[in-house]
Design a protein around this nucleic acid. Structure first.
Lengths: 132, 132
DNA sequence: TATATATTTGTGTTATAGCACAACTATGCA
DNA sequence: TGCATAGTTGTGCTATAACACAAATATATA
């Protein structure tokens, strides 16, 4: 068993970035885990960028990641206890710019493409990314 | 009336700095407002440094500041509603390095020097700062 | 009015963090 | 075995943020 010391203040640092907060919000609001390609299609940001941010969230103790074939699923960590309180706070945040509701709409669309609750396809937005 | 738009993500950015989190924790735990010199004596950091961090907290919407003679009192803002939830989360954070308990001890000592609930003295730690 | 002091701020420096490009690893499938 | 693709990471660049020093502002008091 590996003991990882997680600084309490590190969670705020992890959430201080807009990209990271957008991803966490999607998972908090939907309660869903997500693979990278689903995040790419929801936030419309390049995969290398989101991959690095997911790593930061993992190191801060907010996400645990699990490889499943080609895909890596990221999910919210529920411990220690204050984490759930933190998620409740995040859920209560306003959405003044409608950024999160747009993310959420795309995320739900993307989730509907799963089969048996698992992601079966890769990044869909890459194709029309250059055309926009 | 002045409308200030506060970005929801800005609160996390404000709390991402250790100095700022230490100050907010003192106010959250004690429920007390504080002037700069009391913070200086509690965190043992230079006043210009804490003054700048207090400004960032104010601009992020976490603190409101009120001048009272020579002193400026800073207090936690209670609105919008998710702020109180955020403070509850902060109060639940662990203190793995005993930094916060040391801050708290000094802060309580400093608060006991108030007269009629108001700060009457300036920075006390400056004197023995160089000698340590 | 002059001084002491609580607090703020201008400025240059340095450390940190996010970014894009491209190369790389790993896995499923033909 | 070779290819396509999900995901990660090395690297250099750039923007941001924290810092220390010093000067400035504001207010109480002698």
């Amino acid at each position: 068993m590996q003991i990882i010391k997680i600084e309490a203040g590190a969670v705020f640092h992890a959430l201080a970035d807009e990209i990271r907060l957008r991803m966490i919000r999607l998972m908090v609001v939907t309660g869903q885990e997500s693979c990278l390609c689903e995040m790419v299609d929801s936030l419309l940001e390049p995969s290398y960028k989101l991959s690095r941010h997911l790593k930061i969230l993992r190191q801060a103790g907010l996400l645990s990641s699990q490889k499943e074939g080609r895909w890596v699923y990221h999910r919210l960590v529920q411990t220690p206890a204050y984490m759930e309180q933190l998620y409740a706070t995040i859920q209560a945040l306003p959405d003044s710019d409608d950024i999160y509701s747009a993310d959420l709409k795309r995320f739900r669309n993307r989730l509907s493409l799963r089969e048996a609750g698992r992601c079966q396809i890769g990044i869909q937005s890459e194709a029309f990314k250059t055309g926009t």
